[in-house]
């Protein structure tokens, strides 16, 4: 099925915001085209649920349709869209039964008194190509990200997956830039450890065969 290419014949974010503030109603369809993928994928990465992400996308679009003209322009429009998407996704998560989270401290690197790591570190970075598109690896990665505590998870998704700057992430979440950096580092350490365990098991399994 073919869908219109949202990048063709659309307004830039800046023009779109001007039109919204001026009450130019014709821009709503373009607004939806420009933002719905961003809204849906961010929500899906936070909730990992198709139906919740569809609901969140609809709720956010409705807010943009109804309140877009009141946007003050104090921060970037996209930051505002990200912020309301995160809030709507958290509302969905709150209504769901809580699953026990792994403590991030248990997974961060541990050191002996000399400052050396306890972990036996194996370099699997050269062997990821063949695994990258396998369903098993994909599931493992998604599960590892889902296990991250919320504070670290949202920073990791905005910064490393969406590719936003530390500045912008700090602005969206209303936290300092050092806090963004520290949460991102902790998230990466956590995920590295989870993936290391997986690749370690994968290698052992292959060697047994």
């Amino acid at each position: 099925m073919e869908f219109p290419d949202p990048t063709k014949g659309t307004l830039t974010e800046e023009q779109l915001v001007k039109d919204l503030q001026a009450g130019e109603m014709g821009s709503f369809e373009q607004l939806a085209n420009l933002y719905q993928k961003k809204i849906y994928t961010l929500s899906f990465n936070l909730t990992r649920n198709i139906s919740d992400s569809q609901d969140v996308t609809q709720e956010v679009l409705l807010i943009l349709f109804r309140k877009g003209h009141t946007f003050q322009g104090k921060s970037a429009f996209s930051s505002w869209v990200y912020r309301i998407t995160i809030n709507a996704s958290y509302m969905k998560l709150r209504s769901r039964k809580k699953e026990p989270k792994v403590s991030i401290e248990d997974v961060l690197p541990a050191f002996n008194q000399g400052g050396f790591q306890y972990e036996k570190i194996q370099d699997w970075s050269e062997n990821t190509e063949s695994l990258l598109f396998g369903n098993e690896t994909r599931n493992i990665i998604q599960k590892a990200v889902d296990l991250l505590p919320d504070k670290e998870k949202v920073v990791f998704i905005l910064r490393d997956v969406e590719g936003l700057s530390s500045n912008k992430v700090g602005n969206i979440l209303e936290i300092s830039i050092p806090a963004v950096k520290s949460r991102l580092h902790r998230a990466r350490l956590f995920l590295r450890k989870k993936l290391s365990n997986y690749f370690w098991e994968y290698k052992a399994r292959k060697e047994r065969k």
Partner: peptide
């Protein structure tokens, strides 16, 4: 090396979640 690869692997995996 594995810290860097982790970021890349996760990004490539989660970015492909299309609607």
């Amino acid at each position: 090396n594995t810290y860097r690869s982790t970021t890349l692997l996760c990004k490539n995996t989660l970015k492909t979640n299309d609607i």
